[in-house]
């Protein structure tokens, strides 16, 4: 791994998240105290399994234990992190309307740039082409000549495009992919329904992790992701996609962490 200041800060943020989770969050306290973990080791003599990382299914089953003792939300936000990755994903500063077409995403993305609005559209509603308010809003926005960005799985984006009137310009689209179904682009976002948006495919052709908000490390169980920015639900060392083997490198072009599965 590279040895830059950025990497050391990234690593320090991860260590703080681990320390905080061990001290305040029941799920990690129980798991790491009783079974152990590595990198960092918190209880000497115990290494646990998969370096202390937990499968996403297990974390989802025990979401109630991911809130800190002091209290907090236990509801995951599948749209978390989207706003910060859009610029790099689309190479445009903003869009008037950002539509997430995904059954798992029920709340619009937050933190979009000024002038942008976010909304969600269930794939069934996109396919039915009925009198759906979100569809009407998309059509109106496109008719005004403003840009619309659709985010979702390829098949859902196709359904949305076919539901729109043919005379309108198509919306911009960025497909998002699960970690076990990464493609070669040219655009794409790395998404997990529990952790939210984790990374982006950049112009170098590599999958970049959102290093300000997400940490990733290699474990024997696969790549383990940590959401650094959100403290409740606290998601630390989660094996997304059932645990996908991979490696973490530094991008030679951008000097930021990239994953290779």
């Amino acid at each position: 791994m590279w040895n830059s200041l950025a990497y050391r800060l990234w690593r320090a943020a991860y260590l703080r998240a681990v320390s905080s989770a061990f001290a305040t969050v029941p799920l990690y306290r129980e798991t790491w105290a009783l079974h152990g973990r590595t990198d960092p080791v918190l209880v000497p003599g115990k290494t646990g399994s998969n370096g202390g990382a937990l499968p996403a299914d297990e974390v989802r089953r025990r979401l109630v234990d991911t809130a800190p003792l002091a209290g907090g939300s236990t509801e995951p936000d599948p749209a978390r992190g989207l706003a910060f990755l859009l610029t790099r994903a689309t190479q445009r500063p903003s869009h008037r309307l950002v539509v997430v077409v995904d059954a798992e995403v029920t709340r619009p993305p937050t933190g979009l740039p000024r002038g942008s609005r976010g909304c969600v559209l269930h794939p069934d509603a996109a396919a039915s082409a009925g009198d759906e308010p979100v569809l009407r809003e998309i059509v109106d926005t496109l008719r005004r000549g403003e840009r619309v960005l659709a985010v979702g799985e390829d098949k859902n984006l196709d359904a949305l495009s076919s539901a729109l009137p043919a005379e309108l310009p198509p919306p911009d689209r960025v497909p998002h992919h699960r970690i076990d179904r990464l493609t070669g682009g040219p655009f794409g976002l790395l998404h997990d329904p529990l952790l939210g948006y984790l990374g982006v495919l950049r112009d170098c052709g590599r999958w970049h992790v959102d290093r300000r908000r997400v940490h990733v490390r290699e474990t024997t169980g696969g790549l383990a992701f940590t959401v650094l920015e959100r403290t409740s639900p606290r998601l630390v060392d989660v094996l997304v996609g059932g645990g996908v083997p991979g490696e973490v490198h530094a991008c030679p072009q951008h000097a930021s962490p990239v994953i290779q599965t």
Partner: peptide, 10 residues
């Protein structure tokens, strides 16, 4: 009112 588990025994 602490929101933290007991300090590490080590």
């Amino acid at each position: 009112s602490t929101g933290r588990f007991g300090p590490a025994a080590t």
